[in-house]
Simulated assay, not measured.
Amino acid sequence: MVHAAGVMALRPTRELDLAEPDRQLRINVRGTFVMAREAARRIRLGGAIVAFSTSVTRLHLPTYGAYAATKGAVEALVPILAKELGNRDVTVNAVAPGPTATELFFDGKSQQVIDRIAGLSPMNRLGTPQDIAEVVAFLAGPGRWINGQIVFANGGAA
């Protein structure tokens, strides 16, 4: 089971309309809890659950406070759920992508900002959806001994 739904609104903390973090909490955190509960009830023995966090929890970029806080909650849940489901041989992990060339990432950013963020990686590029999909596939398949972890897939940006 892979849970990748999420929203992101960027604002300096002092400028936040509380409706923005409320929406992010509802989708990013509550959505992950709903996914976790339903997956825990239904997943087959030996299954895998993969949630999504973000490398922003380690990059500490201005304007990402509300988003990073919601993903920090996801990171707190993952190892707990892994312990709760371990006796069923179910692995639970999260992938924490770095800057990735998606519509969510590009929304509201100038080319200058995009280039600056791409430069955070020693590879001097944004990740691609394929880069992230490969990590998810590994965790959902042959990566059976990885459990309760947050895997940072960010090209070395953090």
Results as ranks from 00 to 15, higher is better:
Leu25Met: 13
Val92Leu: 03
Arg44Trp: 07
Val74Tyr: 07
Thr13Glu: 09
Ile150Phe: 01
Asn93Cys: 09
Arg37Ser: 11
Ile114Asn: 02
Val90Asn: 01
Leu61Phe: 01
Gly65Trp: 13
Ser110Cys: 07
Phe138Asn: 03
Thr70Gly: 02
Pro122Cys: 12
Pro129Met: 09
Asp115Ala: 15
Thr128Ser: 14
Arg42Gln: 13
Thr102Ser: 09
Glu103Thr: 14
Ala118Leu: 05
Glu15Thr: 12
Met1Val: 11
Arg23Tyr: 01
Glu84Val: 12
Gly119Thr: 04
Phe105Asp: 04
Ala48Asp: 00
Ile80Asn: 14
Lys83Phe: 07
Ala5Val: 12
Gln111Gly: 03
Gly65His: 13
Arg30His: 06
Ile49Tyr: 09
Leu25Ser: 06
Gly148Val: 02
Leu61Trp: 02
Pro122His: 09
Thr100Tyr: 09
Thr63Leu: 05
Ala153Asn: 07
Arg41Ser: 15
Ala137Gly: 01
Leu25His: 10
Ala158Met: 11
Ala73Pro: 09
Ala140Pro: 08
Ser55Glu: 09
Ala5Gly: 09
Val74Trp: 03
Ile132Phe: 02
Pro62Trp: 07
Glu84Asp: 14
Glu20Tyr: 06
Val92Met: 00
Val50Glu: 11
Gly108Thr: 14
Phe33Cys: 14
Ala19Leu: 15
Leu16Phe: 09
Met35Tyr: 10
Ala94Lys: 01
Met123His: 10
Gln111Ile: 05
Asp115Met: 08
Asp115Trp: 05
Val29Met: 11
Thr100Asn: 12
Gly127Trp: 00
Ala9Thr: 13
Ala5Asn: 13
Pro21Thr: 10
Pro12Thr: 11
Gly108Ile: 14
Gly6Tyr: 11
Arg26Thr: 03
Val56Leu: 02
Glu15Trp: 07
Val90Arg: 01
Asp22Asn: 06
Leu120Thr: 08
Leu81Glu: 06
Gly143Pro: 03
His3Met: 15
Glu84Tyr: 06
Gly141Gln: 13
Ile132Arg: 00
Arg41Glu: 15
Pro79Arg: 08
Phe105Lys: 04
Gly72Met: 00
Ile27Arg: 08
Glu38Asn: 04
Gly72Ala: 04
Leu85Val: 14
Val56Trp: 00
Pro122Arg: 10
Arg26Ser: 03
Arg11Gln: 14
Asn87Met: 12
Leu45Ser: 08
Gly47Phe: 06
Ile132Gln: 02
Lys83Ile: 07
Tyr64Asn: 14
Ala36Asn: 11
Gln111Ser: 12
Ala101Pro: 00
Asp22Ser: 08
Val74Met: 05
Leu77Tyr: 15
Arg37Phe: 05
Ala5Asp: 07
Ile80Phe: 08
Arg42Ile: 07
Tyr67Trp: 05
Glu20Phe: 06
Gly98Glu: 06
Val56Thr: 07
Ala140Cys: 14
Arg125Lys: 05
Pro62Phe: 03
Ala118Lys: 05
Ala48Glu: 04
Asn147His: 12
Gln112Val: 12
Lys109Thr: 03
Thr128Val: 10
Val78Asn: 00
Phe105Gln: 09
Arg144Glu: 12
Thr63Lys: 05
Leu126Pro: 03
Gln111Arg: 13
Phe33Asp: 11
Thr91Gly: 09
Gly31Cys: 04
Asn154Ser: 13
Ala68Cys: 02
